[in-house]
Nucleic acid binder design. Structure first.
Length: 867
RNA sequence: GCCUGGGUGGCGGAAUAGGUAGACGCAAGGGACUUAAAAUCCCUUGGGGCAUAGUCCCCGUACGAGUUCGAUUCUCGUCCCAGGCACCA
């Protein structure tokens, strides 16, 4: 064994051993229990960043741990390889998206290997590979046949920078999730997946995923946004038309004093036609259409509308009420029409005030006069029904049910549920994505491509357009085709699919990545799926995770898989953060742009003292990034991994600290030296693993500490993935070994003691091996253990009889305050312990002759004397 | 505004079926080794108090109440921070 710990030497060595011996290959061995561990695959942006390192280190520890526990572990890695950055980079650097992507993949693969992750590289996949996306196109065709998707023209979210459409989930606070540009509304034809058909099921199962963080489930529930209520039809005066509204408050219907239609509602123009309001309405609608959706949804947006010069009838009291169109009604939600009850809805209230419309309270809070209700603002609470004909005097909750029953009997309405979730628009007007496999025929219309003609391959000989936009439309060879139905001339669809489509089923593809008869081998999927543990960033809480749950349901309904939920357990890891440095003149500074002098951090450019900013998520714009590759270069992969695990528990944010990394490195060196001191003395010694009864003194203490550590580390990993406390425990064990060493020279240790030491050392190595796999392999081998890999060793187990010492530390309290402590034999009876506590010198001072009211004893822990 | 988390030393973080608050690490200080430095090893380290310097006392887990023999942990109220949603009828 080398004197010095040199990760540069040992890390590549063991990486080679793992690769050559296929230590992490995952065969479909159905006789063994499987464990599918998955981390969210990366977009091949060019370099691995620290967030990846953290994510994949957490996953790697679990994968290696489960493998040591005897599971057949599937731990794959691949590339979410379609997407716009490739196109933009290709334009900037005058290269091809494919070339750029594959080069990035090569770089990043190398970086991942350098970190020693336990992937089964035979299963690597890239979603831009035609062998991958052909099955996505195949699925598209199956969904098309079943009516699970459709094409429509609608207002869609458009990002001018990316020059493409975005799904609702991809709009964050009115801006593009990728580039941050404000999203506009644009009328466009596009393809949609009917995810709303699954809204109820997706929602229901949120309560059946105990392995998911509550936070993520809540976000999904909110996103789906279920509301229950009623749909009610209002006849329009003087026509045969009716206006259907959705309301969550049918109990307030007697207070409906006007009707509001969304500007895009088909009846708006129709009803205003030929009235004095026609031109005003047309102008209003045009103005609303020109406004972006985000402008329209701005906070506290002034409510605005216009009367259509048309009336409808409130079916409960036959009252004539005016019809308006207004900016706060949304065509996409419910029916696009609102029955306005200004007394009990704040928006309606504001609108009514502005336009001088009638406000009739129909629910009165108890203890308030009817005249007082809804005077200053809408009253949205419960109470007694008033002004509501036969329902007067009832509680509104009761009337709610009775009213809907009455609507149903009269045939004017029914119970109805509405969701916030919209269908998933998957059309993208970009090049670097999977082509939608249909053609447009002049005679036959939309015709799906024949299954045998798949894949519809993305042509590589294209000229990318400056500023984006799809070059496919002008690629004659691609576009010009024959109709699969009539063989007449036809044009290919040039939309490509949202890249979230690829990531909605890649975990199933991993089960049989080279299968060429379908999306996946049913047997392989049957064995491996669902994913037992999924790990990734919380930023995908609604997008990727919701789409994947939806896709799995589609696959199930097509008879391709037998389960609904793809991920049994989910861990969302926190962000990696670092403090920022800022110069008043030069803005944010990289660490290398500052120098440390006279206990101050100074800007190198101007010499001004830099302000230490707050700790924020690492990003280029804040200049608080660190490059994991430089860190690995300097300290080795094991140190970087150790720090990522030790600095905080996985679900919390991690604050990067250069000194903390240094500390990690110091700990690894400490073990290395300890092993070095003992290795020759232990060469002939087998580890002691008998009962603790045969041991005494320091050896006995160390032996018990060892078993306690095994239990602690196992529980920490098993229950919560709290690697930080697991590492702490091993550090304590290492400190204990140093403690023993300070008492005796390794070469003079008697056989029994040396055996205990060997056991402790080997245990520390085994327990750390999933976290820092290289140094532990090297130490394991140096200790003379059999060849192979630690990954195939058994995870250590603890002896119950070696978990506790023979004495207990008992705490003495008087009136709940700590007044003393003493050690006593573990088998001492309660009376003895009580007596000992009551006679304690310090405790007696506080009892001070007062009568003892009560003595509470907690076994093995404390005695509390109440006076 | 609504919904989730979360507020513990100089710092990252431990400890909650209620039972010694501050494990482990970082930083800081002291000592050993060295001609010297680095590295290493050992010790101290929440704040305050003391004519008894201790197995001592008081205070302390955002703030204020409450339950309890005993609360960082449970209940109620308040403040602050982070994330998500937000004219969804």
């Amino acid at each position: 064994m080398e004197q010095r710990y040199d990760p540069k030497k040992i890390e590549p060595k063991w990486q080679k051993v793992w690769e050559e011996n296929e230590i992490f290959a995952a065969p479909e061995d159905t006789s063994r229990e499987k464990y599918y561990l998955l981390e969210m695959f990366p977009y091949p942006s060019g370099r691995i960043h620290i967030g990846h390192v953290r994510n994949y280190t957490i996953g790697d520890v679990v994968a290696r741990y489960k493998q040591m526990c005897g599971y057949n572990v599937l731990h794959p890695m691949g590339w979410d390889a379609f997407g716009m950055p490739a196109e933009n980079a290709a334009i900037d650097n005058n290269t091809h998206p494919a070339k750029w992507t594959y080069e990035n993949i090569a770089t990043m693969r190398k970086q991942l290997k350098r970190l020693g992750f336990s992937y089964d590289w035979n299963r690597e996949l890239a979603t831009c590979d035609p062998d991958y996306y052909r099955w996505e196109q195949w699925l598209f065709l199956r969904m098309y046949e079943r009516g699970m998707l459709y094409r429509k023209e609608s207002f869609v979210n458009w990002c001018e920078t990316c020059r493409t459409v975005l799904a609702n989930e991809q709009v964050e606070a009115g801006c593009c999730w990728r580039c941050g540009r404000q999203v506009k509304q644009k009328k466009l034809w596009g393809w949609f997946f009917r995810i709303t058909d699954y809204a109820e099921d997706l929602l229901e199962y949120c309560d059946k995923l105990p392995g998911w963080p509550e936070k993520v489930l809540t976000m999904q529930k909110n996103w789906i946004g279920k509301s229950t209520g009623a749909e009610i039809r209002f006849p329009v005066n003087g026509t045969d038309e009716t206006i259907a509204v959705f309301t969550t408050r049918p109990d307030t219907i007697y207070g409906a004093t006007f009707m509001v239609l969304a500007p895009e509602h088909p009846l708006v123009q129709q009803l205003a036609a030929g009235t004095g309001q026609e031109s005003g309405v047309t102008d209003f609608v045009a103005r609303m259409a020109a406004e972006s959706r985000t402008d329209r949804m701005l906070e506290n947006r002034e409510k605005e509308g216009i009367f259509l010069d048309a009336w409808c009838v409130n079916p409960v009291n036959n009252k004539k009420i005016p019809i308006y169109t207004a900016n706060f009604a949304l065509m996409e939600y419910g029916t696009g029409a609102v029955m306005a009850v200004p007394a009990h809805d704040q928006r309606d209230f504001e609108f009514a005030r502005k336009y001088g419309l009638e406000i009739i309270p129909v629910i009165k809070p108890s203890g308030e006069e009817a005249e007082e209700t809804a005077k200053e603002q809408a009253y949205t609470g419960d109470g007694e029904m008033i002004n509501s004909g036969p329902f007067n005097g009832m509680h509104n909750r009761e009337a709610y049910e009775d009213l809907i029953d009455w609507f149903e009997k009269q045939g004017i309405g029914k119970r109805e549920v509405s969701y916030r979730l919209r269908d998933w628009g998957i059309s993208r007007q970009r090049y670097w994505g999977a082509p939608v496999p249909v053609v447009h025929c002049e005679k036959c219309g939309i015709v799906p491509v024949n299954e045998n003609d798949l894949p519809v391959v993305l042509p590589e000989d294209i000229d990318l357009l400056e500023g984006g936009g799809s070059p496919l439309a002008s690629h004659e060879e691609f576009v010009k085709t024959k109709c699969p139905k009539c063989s007449g001339p036809a044009r290919r669809e040039t939309d490509t699919m949202d890249t979230f489509v690829e990531s909605s089923w890649y975990f199933e593809r991993y089960c049989s990545p080279h299968y060429d008869k379908g999306m996946f081998d049913p047997e392989a999927v049957d064995y491996w799926m669902p994913v037992d543990q999924y790990i990734g960033g919380v930023e995908h809480a609604v997008m990727h995770l919701l789409y994947s749950r939806y896709f799995t349901r589609v696959l199930k309904d097509l008879g391709l898989v037998a389960f609904k939920e793809p991920f049994t357990r989910l861990l969302t890891q926190g962000m990696v953060c670092k403090e920022t440095q800022r110069c008043p003149e030069h803005g944010y500074l990289y660490p290398e742009e500052t120098e440390y002098r006279d206990e101050k951090i100074l800007c190198k450019k101007c010499g001004c003292p830099a302000e230490l900013g707050r700790v924020e998520k690492m990003s280029k714009s804040k200049k608080n990034i660190i490059d994991p590759n430089l860190m690995v270069e300097h300290y080795g992969a094991d140190t970087v991994r150790l720090f990522c695990l030790f600095a905080s528990p996985p679900e919390r944010d991690l604050e990067w600290s250069d000194q903390g990394v240094e500390g990690g490195s110091r700990f690894l060196n400490r073990i290395w030296r300890l092993a070095g001191n003992w290795i020759s003395a232990l060469s002939e010694t087998p580890p002691y693993d008998g009962p603790p009864a045969g041991l005494g003194g320091a050896a006995r203490d160390l032996y018990i500490k060892t078993h306690q550590t095994i239990k602690k580390v196992t529980d920490d990993i098993e229950e919560k993935f709290h690697f930080n406390t697991a590492i702490s425990a091993v550090m304590e064990l290492v400190n204990a070994m140093y403690g023993l060493e300070s008492q005796l020279n390794p070469h003079e240790a008697e056989q029994r003691v040396a055996g205990v030491m060997r056991h402790a050392l080997e245990t520390a190595v085994l327990l750390l091996s999933p976290m820092v796999p290289h140094i532990t392999e090297e130490l394991w081998a140096a200790l003379g253990n059999r060849a192979g890999s630690l990954a195939n060793e058994k995870w250590p187990s603890y002896r119950k009889d070696a978990l506790s010492t023979d004495t207990r530390l008992i705490v003495i309290q008087v009136n709940g305050k700590l007044r003393g402590k003493f050690e006593i034999e573990a088998d001492a009876d309660e009376e003895t312990i009580k007596e000992r506590a009551l006679s304690d010198e310090n405790a007696t001072r506080f009892i001070a002759g007062k009568p003892v009211k009560k003595v509470i004893t907690v076994k093995d822990k404390l005695v509390n004397i109440v006076v």
